[in-house]
Amino acid sequence: MATGGRRGAAAAPLLVAVAALLLGAAGHLYPGEVCPGMDIRNNLTRLHELENCSVIEGHLQILLMFKTRPEDFRDLSFPKLIMITDYLLLFRVYGLESLKDLFPNLTVIRGSRLFFNYALVIFEMVHLKELGLYNLMNITRGSVRIEKNNELCYLATIDWSRILDSVEDNYIVLNKDDNEECGDICPGTAKGKTNCPATVINGQFVERCWTHSHCQKVCPTICKSHGCTAEGLCCHSECLGNCSQPDDPTKCVACRNFYLDGRCVETCPPPYYHFQDWRCVNFSFCQDLHHKCKNSRRQGCHQYVIHNNKCIPECPSGYTMNSSNLLCTPCLGPCPKVCHLLEGEKTIDSVTSAQELRGCTVINGSLIINIRGGNNLAAELEANLGLIEEISGYLKIRRSYALVSLSFFRKLRLIRGETLEIGNYSFYALDNQNLRQLWDWSKHNLTITQGKLFFHYNPKLCLSEIHKMEEVSGTKGRQERNDIALKTNGDQASCENELLKFSYIRTSFDKI
């Protein structure tokens, strides 16, 4: 039985969820670079991206490699990797027998973001014989899940209580170790020597080791999670996991709180800001991140802002960003909400898709409305799209047979046209069989910064309504002859009103 693990408890099935942008060198404390989270699957090609990484700022997932063999891993080693800020997950990587050479110096898994409450997941690794993470000293947050690894031993010899604050939620089941077939031998045991430290858990006094050649490092209890030197002297209180010299914040392997210019500090002093819960960055760093993602459509890219001495992905609820200094300031009234469309555009074809934009005031991208039916549609669209004030790209209304009016965009005031449909149009209306009105132009103002209007096959939309939009939106004169079809717009509506004058002759039985 794995020490510190839980057996036999019912657990939810383990679901495996399925960018080499360097964020800056980590400095003297770390020998390499800070790398983003990685999802490495199918083959070993991307694994080489770990070569210079000291910190993975995010998670590391290595999974679904069915053609790899043990010899493929023999020359692979990433000794610079010290810390993973989120979680480490391995799933069905064939041929991998140990992690001792792959990650010989991995010391800390912070667990800032977890995989279903777990910071370390080893699942269905069919050839893994031992973990071998002999320098792993601290899992700051989260638990361990090690399950269905039929060859995995050296679990009962690990004292997880020396690595985690609590072992109650560890789930370590259905491994070879369960069948008591392992016969784990710690260093020196074969020669009758006791080389590794022994600890007591559940009444068992057991030597602690990761492999037959690597003991588990056990520091004096007084050192807590700070770690200790090879001689057993406690590291500085700002260290986490390990250090090369005692009581020196510049000799830590990793930091308990924050890293700044080669030393570990309790908090980031001005003019620095907390970033990702582990390091200090200056304003320029946060500003660069903001600008890199301002026009990016890459998933996970955030326009970072500053709030409460932190550089964070977005302002919290009730705050909006001051564009001059990136500071989050309290909103006066309802907060603006910028919604970034991942692929640059979004099609609204149902109430469900409209709900995804609920509360958005600025759309960074283009909207395509293609709704053919739905219950209580006008009210639903207004509830979900009615706060949109600005669209950076274009607005396209296409084959939306259920629409009679666009009044559900009740606050839309600006279409920038930074991206144009077919390279020309910022407003595009095609084949809307029941569209009769755009907006009530006596109450609604709309500016279209650039781009043209396109109207074709809107049989109940009168040309007068379209011409009014040209005047109000500032697009009059931009359109070419064929942009607004004269014969297919309003051709099934009563669009022309003329005053009919009647004269009559009164007659009676005795007068003409």
Rank of each mutant, 00 (worst) to 15 (best):
D247L: 09
P269L: 06
A119Y: 00
Q216M: 08
Y94R: 09
S98L: 00
C255G: 00
I40R: 00
Q287S: 10
D75M: 15
P270E: 09
L128F: 09
L152V: 11
Q245S: 11
H226D: 11
P79H: 03
Y134L: 09
I163Q: 02
T85R: 12
C243S: 00
H214R: 04
W278H: 05
H302R: 07
D178L: 08
L131A: 15
Y94K: 09
P270K: 08
E180F: 04
D277G: 12
L260M: 03
G300N: 07
I201D: 12
V144Q: 01
N257W: 03
G132V: 01
R263K: 08
V265W: 08
S317K: 13
F73G: 10
L81F: 00
I82A: 12
P70E: 06
C311I: 07
D169S: 14
A230T: 11
C301Y: 15
C255I: 00
E97L: 06
C53N: 00
Y94V: 14
C243L: 00
G203H: 07
C243H: 00
A119E: 00
C35Y: 00
E33S: 11
K251V: 05
C255F: 00
S237P: 09
C311Q: 01
L81T: 12
S324E: 10
S237I: 09
N138D: 05
D169I: 06
L89F: 11
S284K: 05
T140A: 12
H236G: 09
N175P: 08
H28C: 15
V93T: 13
S143M: 12
V206A: 08
S77L: 11
R256V: 09
S225Q: 13
H59A: 08
P70N: 04
C255N: 00
C252I: 00
D72H: 02
Q61I: 06
F103R: 02
R263C: 03
K310Y: 10
M137V: 09
R41H: 00
F275S: 05
L128P: 00
G262Y: 02
M83Y: 06
S284W: 09
G58M: 00
C293G: 05
N242H: 07
D247H: 08
R162D: 07
T329W: 09
I40V: 15
H307W: 13
L60P: 00
H236I: 02
I109T: 00
L50G: 01
D72E: 02
L99K: 00
S296T: 11
P31V: 09
C268T: 00
S323R: 02
L106Y: 00
E71F: 14
G241D: 01
E33P: 11
A190E: 02
N42H: 14
Y94P: 13
S143Y: 07
R298Y: 11
W210E: 05
L60G: 00
D288R: 10
D288E: 05
A190H: 12
N242L: 11
M321E: 02
L47M: 03
V253S: 14
W210Q: 14
N117S: 08
E57A: 11
Y171L: 04
P197Q: 14
A230K: 15
L164D: 11
P104R: 01
G333R: 08
L29S: 11
T229H: 03
P36M: 15
T320P: 04
R145H: 08
D248V: 06
D184S: 08
T157H: 10
C223K: 01
I158K: 02
T157C: 08
T267S: 10
A198L: 09
D277W: 06
L102M: 14
G241H: 03
G300F: 09
R162V: 09
P79G: 13
P330D: 14
W210Y: 04
F66A: 04
S324L: 11
E57Q: 12
P31N: 15
C264F: 01
F275T: 04
C264G: 00
P316S: 02
P330V: 12
F258K: 14
L120P: 01
C228Y: 03
I222A: 10
G183L: 06
C186E: 04
Q276H: 13
D177I: 02
D178N: 13
W278K: 00
T229F: 01
D177V: 02
Y134P: 12
F258Q: 04
L114N: 15
L131S: 02
C53Y: 02
S161K: 14
T107C: 03
G183Q: 07
P330T: 07
C301I: 00
L136S: 01
G58K: 00
I56K: 00
C153V: 03
G95K: 04
T85M: 06
S77D: 04
I306K: 03
C228G: 15
V253D: 02
E314M: 05
Q299G: 14
V305A: 09
T85I: 12
P313Q: 15
L102P: 01
C53F: 00
N308I: 08
H290F: 05
R41S: 15
C264K: 00
P316Q: 10
I139F: 03
N322T: 02
G192E: 02
M137A: 06
L88S: 01
H214A: 15
Q287F: 10
Y273L: 07
V265M: 10
K294G: 10
S225L: 07
T320K: 06
T157V: 05
R297D: 15
H59D: 02
L64T: 10
P270R: 08
A119P: 00
L44P: 06
T189I: 09
S225A: 05
L64M: 10
C280Q: 01
F66H: 03
K129A: 12
L81V: 02
H302W: 14
C215A: 05
Y118S: 04
P31T: 07
K310V: 03
K191R: 12
P246A: 02
F275M: 14
N282L: 03
I158F: 04
S317A: 02
C35K: 01
R263L: 11
R162Q: 14
Y259V: 05
F115Q: 03
R41W: 08
F123Y: 06
P269E: 06
T329M: 11
L155A: 07
S296F: 13
S284R: 07
L76F: 10
R141P: 01
L64A: 02
P79K: 06
L102R: 01
G192S: 14
C215P: 12
T250E: 10
M38I: 01
L332V: 07
V93I: 04
L64W: 01
F285A: 15
P104H: 01
I40F: 15
I84V: 04
F275N: 15
S143E: 07
L164H: 08
E57T: 06
H291P: 02
L326F: 06
S213L: 09
L155K: 02
T189S: 07
R297I: 12
R113G: 10
H59T: 02
G95I: 15
L164R: 03
N179G: 14
K193R: 09
C215Q: 01
H48M: 03
N138H: 15
A230W: 13
D248G: 03
I62S: 00
G241Y: 10
G241M: 01
R208E: 09
I109N: 00
S112F: 08
A156R: 10
P249I: 05
G188V: 07
H59V: 12
F91G: 05
H214T: 09
R145C: 07
C209R: 03
N42W: 14
L120A: 05
Y134R: 10
K80H: 13
M321P: 02
I84R: 00
Y272A: 03
D261T: 13
P36S: 06
Q61M: 03
S284F: 09
E238M: 09
P220S: 03
C311Y: 06
L128Q: 03
V305D: 03
Y319A: 11
Q216H: 11
V108Y: 02
C311V: 13
T85Q: 14
T320D: 07
C328P: 01
R110D: 01
